[in-house]
Design a protein around this nucleic acid. Sequence first.
RNA 1: GGCGCGAUAGCAAAGCGGUUAUGCCGUGGCCUGCAAAGCCAUUUAGGCCGGUUCGACUCCGGCUCGCGCCUCCA
Length: 477
Amino acid sequence: MLKIYNTLARAKQTFTPITPNKVRMYVCGMTVYDYCHLGHARVMVVFDMVARWFRVSGYDVNYVRNITDVDDKIIQRANENKETIGELTQRFIEAMDEDSQQLGVVRPDAEPRATTHIDAMIDMISQLIKKEHAYQAENGDVFYAVRSFEGYGKLSGKSLEDLRVGERVDVDTFKNDPLDFVLWKSVKPNEPHWDSPWGPGRPGWHIECSAMSGQHLGPQFDIHGGGQDLQFPHHENEIAQSEATHGCQMANLWMHNGFVRVDDEKMSKSLGNFFTIRTVLEQYDAEVVRFFILRAHYRSPLNYSDQHLDDAKSSLMRLYTALKEHEVTVADIDWQHPQAVRFKAAMDDDFNTPEAIAVLFDLASEVNKTKLAETAALLKNLGAVLGLLQQDAVEYLQGKAINYTLNAEAGKYDLKGGDLDFVINGYSEKKIDALIEERANAKKDKNYAEADRIRQELTDAGIVLEDTPQGTTWRKV
RNA sequence: GGCGCGAUAGCAAAGCGGUUAUGCCGUGGCCUGCAAAGCCAUUUAGGCCGGUUCGACUCCGGCUCGCGCCUCCA
């Protein structure tokens, strides 16, 4: 029985889908005016893991993750670059796709964009005005009247009286109430705009998610997710908009993932302490990053540092090492197996991936001891549930994947395989093999000094040799 | 000021009212020509003060410290 922590209830609850065996899930995605950072990586990986687990559990999943492709920052950045917002957002959407693919994130079923749902937003705003939840102010902007919605604050646990309005941001004098938020902004010079009953303008930020979730998943759906920082005001406002429009509960369950932190501070664009995914991937294999994210519980803070990534890298190596002697074919998982039972129990308990990964390590120990192929198969197949361990173990350990990726763009390597001139620090695979043979001959002649010299040479280049009964193999350090 | 979260060994990170979490690192051993990997063993825990209990890291209360939201932010 799957239990999920519901922000709305502040407790773990047994998950009950609205429609049997179906899950409708909406996650707030990216505002595309820059490269994704590790915080975005966490959202993508976490909800990818969630969607995967629902699918493994037999649910038919409809996973929607939106793209915000019009907002203040996008407009500002586009103006700075002297390009259209369309050109700007297209570029960063492509970058986002590359990043998420690297991280093993399965594409959501739909990725609606704000600019293609303006009609739905206008329709919703009209309804809100008609129901007197919204009003047009003197400056032409349309605002949501927060006090007209009874449940305002129920998600974030805030009361209207206690919100410190104006403490950190200037109060908009056109609002009836300082807490009201904008649904439609009337056009300003040099800004993209659309026609509407309230004149040309563009949508406020929160309305897009209400409109798009409604259009793609219906007025009421199972799960709404996103980063913790969206809880207020974004998600609170979404609830106000959607529930006032449709007259029913919006999402049954709200999931919020914890922040990625740097030096115990939230990683964020405003603080400027963020690392983009692509920067990190220059140094670490994408699977290491995915592993790093999933080895912490999704609601816990996740501290980023090289030391932690190195730790994750070593840990992942242990799992792949256990796999390397086994040709594992993808197969169904025997969910009766004691370790699989443990794994399932962990995942069913609010997606406890750290515990699920501990199962993986116990299986790795078992594989190392027993050399049983079926245990290796279970390890790999349970890994697949988390989107881990699916690379060829030997290739992973030799660092081929990361090099393919980094150098594919430069046209150095053929991503589809074939005759690769695969290089680590100037050592091609051919050269490594030749040196291994040379060393084997030296060993045969009992010339250990020469054998050790060769090994040292390779060690210095970051290549570790391992002598086994079947001969010498190598891996990247 | 309001609301919320957290504090576990050198580092990271879980479960659990009593029985080895797990990983990285360290140490000793086995294996190896020597290594590496692996295996075996092993050192480091539960912020502080009270309470409940036969028994608490685990439940309750208080305190201290850290973090987050109340502005855009995943």
